[in-house]
Each structure stands twice: as C-alpha cells, then as structure tokens.
Write a protein that binds this DNA or RNA. Sequence first.
DNA 1: GGCTGGAATATGTATGCACATATTAACGCT
DNA 2: AGCGTTAATATGTGCATACATATTCCAGCC
Lengths: 224, 224
Amino acid sequence: MRAITGWQEARDEALARIRARDWAPGERIPDEVALAEAWGCARATVNRALRDLAEQGYLERRRKGGTRVPLTPVRRATLTIPIIRQDIEERGQKPGYRLLSDLVETPPETLQQIMGTLPLRHIRALHLADDAPYCLEDRWLNPAVSEDVDFTALSPNEWLVGNVSYSEGTLAFHALPADAAHAEALNCAPGTALLALDRSTRAETPITWVRLTYAPGHRVEAGL
Amino acid sequence: MRAITGWQEARDEALARIRARDWAPGERIPDEVALAEAWGCARATVNRALRDLAEQGYLERRRKGGTRVPLTPVRRATLTIPIIRQDIEERGQKPGYRLLSDLVETPPETLQQIMGTLPLRHIRALHLADDAPYCLEDRWLNPAVSEDVDFTALSPNEWLVGNVSYSEGTLAFHALPADAAHAEALNCAPGTALLALDRSTRAETPITWVRLTYAPGHRVEAGL
DNA sequence: GGCTGGAATATGTATGCACATATTAACGCT
DNA sequence: AGCGTTAATATGTGCATACATATTCCAGCC
C-alpha cells in the first residue's frame, strides 16, 4: 500500500479498517511499531492517530495490553454549551432579554446540597428570539461572586461567561411540564412539555446553578 | 518558577493563568517558543498542552495569529451516547426488554428526508429497569442492513451496537408530551412531559433513525 | 489611496531517539 | 499446583530538529 503521509490519513486508514471489520471488535490490532513500519511513517504519527480514535471511543488502549477495538464502542458526542445570545444570533434571529425578578432567598433543599445553605441571589430572566420567548433562565448565584452587578440589561448568562468562566461544572437534560410561571413567560399552556438544561458551575467555591427552560419544540443538537 | 515536567502540568499551569486572568480574555498569550523557554520544556510539550486546552474551548489558536483566550469561551461538554443495557446496569438495576411491534412501513414525510423514501422496518420496543419502564425505543431501520434479524429477544439498540457501529450520525434532545402509546408503554398519564433523544446513523447509506423516549423524570447527564 | 505580492512569523506536523510506566507473561521457588 | 518475583513489551511521554502552512504585515507598485 501507498505510504501514509499525515496522522489524519493514518487515522482515516485505521477507522476504515475498523469499519470494514478488518480489525474485528474485541481483537487486538497490530502495535504501533508494526503499523508505523507497514504504513511507512513514524511511530509518533501512528500514536497520534490511534490516540485520537481512542478519545472518540473507537479504540481502547492500554499499556502493554495493546490497542483493541471495543466490543461495545462507547461513542462520545460533543455538545457545545450554549451561550444564549450567540445561540440565537446563529439562528439568524434577533436576541432580546428581560429581567423578571432578582431576589435574595434561601434556596430549596435540593439546591442546598450543591450550593450550600447560605442565602443566594435568585434571578429569573427571559431570553427572546425575534421578540418571541426563547428560554427562561432560572439562576441561583453565589452573592460573593456577583456582588452588585446589575442584571436589568445584561443577562447573568452573559455576565458570567465574560467574568467568571473557565470553571468546572455538571450538566443534565430533562423534561418538565410548564407550571404557571413557565406558561406565562414562555407563552404556552400550563402542562406543556418543556426541555430543560440544568447546569451547576463551581471553581473553588460553588458559583452558580441554573436551569434553562426552553420554549416548546426546542431541540438541542449535539455534534458527532 | 520551577521547571514544568509534563504536558499535563503545562496544561494546568496555562489553565491556572487563564482562570486567574493573568492571561486576559481577548489577549494573545506568549508564543510556544517563549513559553517553552520560560517553563524549561520543549516546544512540543507546550504545543500539546495548549492544543488540549484549545480542544476544550479554553483557547483559540491560529497559525501566525498566535494563541489567545477567547472573549466568549465556547465550552464543550462530552456526552457518552447511551447503550441502553449498559446504562441500566450502571445504575445497578436489572435490564429488561420487550418487543412491541416490528413492521415494514413507509416512513412519515419528515423521516423520508433523512432516510429516503423506501419502505423501512419500523420497530417499537420497551426497555425496562428492574421491571419498570425505562425508555421506549422507536426505530426506523434500513432493511438492507438488518435483513432477517430477530428482535424479539435482542434489542435493535444492542444489535446495532455490535454489528453496524463505528458510524457517523446526529443527535438531538427535545421534550414531548406523552401520547396514548407512550402513556401505555411507559406507564404514565397522557400529556406527561417526556425527554426524548433523536439519533440518526449513517455510513455510506442511511442506516437507522431512532427516538428514545425516556420514562418521566429521567435525566441525561453530560460530562465536563 | 488602494491593491498586490512577498517576507516574516506562529502554529501544525513529521521524525528519530530515549526513557517512563503499566501490565502482562514467564519463570522459578516452595 | 500455587505464589511471588522478574523480565518482556506496548503504550505514554519528552526532546531536538526540520520543514509545512496559514496568516499577517509591510513594502512597493499602480
């Protein structure tokens, strides 16, 4: 076979063999040195290619154990965490924003396990796309982080992205029925099925917990 | 400062500087050669570290343009695509499966755009966790791929993973209200808000389109 | 002034080498 | 046979070097 030039080509070649079941699931594939020789490239190039495939779940690698095609490949999808304004703009719509409430409250029991028991700043805000409701931002914020920021014109989402980002966190999707508040804000009937995204963010201390509840029919797409 | 030993340490050092806004958003950071010299390691090591951070959205890199901290960091979360049986087992529950229907039909208009117009094999099946409904698998399958596979005992999900995997696809989350069929299968009231995951898979030709509708209250978690 | 083409530059990648490390496999002892 | 120690081995990583490539920037031209 023709010599392989770059690591991407090596990756494609390897993926082709996996897809063709030339390298069968559960089987060990030739080691890096052998592949490098067979493909006429350096071991580092093969390494890069196989490492890339392993990151995507197409291969499993272990020291000394060699590289093998997993029997049940756990594929990973990547999901770009939404920055709401950008999200809307990318859809070719005009973003809008309205602050609904901004209070200091004691969070409910379930939230206290994540954010602690201290009173938190509770912000509710509505994001609009072409003047139609897009999503409801229901956020609990560590007051030590936000201090005196004014969210009447700037959404907490946007402020956080610009000021407290680059942090750790968790993320989960679920569905919930619209309650009265959702119904009014998102302009839908109570009980409507809504997609919600819960996200908690922390650095050294808990920073924020937010639930984004999208307008009816919204879809969140993931890549790969 | 002390010399950096590995690329992970270099990555941590860089991430610390980003978090500390030592490298401010929008600003160019020193180039690889400078960092390598400052940190007492090879440029390849710095490259690996910064490349890793760029993949996670913490940095933006462009040839000749240098590396900079993005103003609005687009963070990426990774989401492991569920293999239902494993999913259930990892929760410490007993997986179960029941085939509901298996027919050859003409797909609805919206699906024809993805899967083509030919008649498709339409399979409906229920997955159980500890004998309780877990999720409903509503699948349209290219008959050329599945031929005469019997899905009474083995779920299409599992069969596909073992036989037609390593392919491309798309994935999206949304919420929908339970219709009569959902209600019966998932043992909930009609209209209940349900989380659904649509996934289409293709290699050279379209392979399958599936909607997994989860039992009420289910959450799908993403990492990072 | 505006456009074009060429130099300068930062990242991208390939290579050969060396050594580290995790794990398996083999060996030898009791 | 069973067990613990040791050697073998595949991947993980670091480094120095060289060249490739995409952009930016600037100079020079019209």
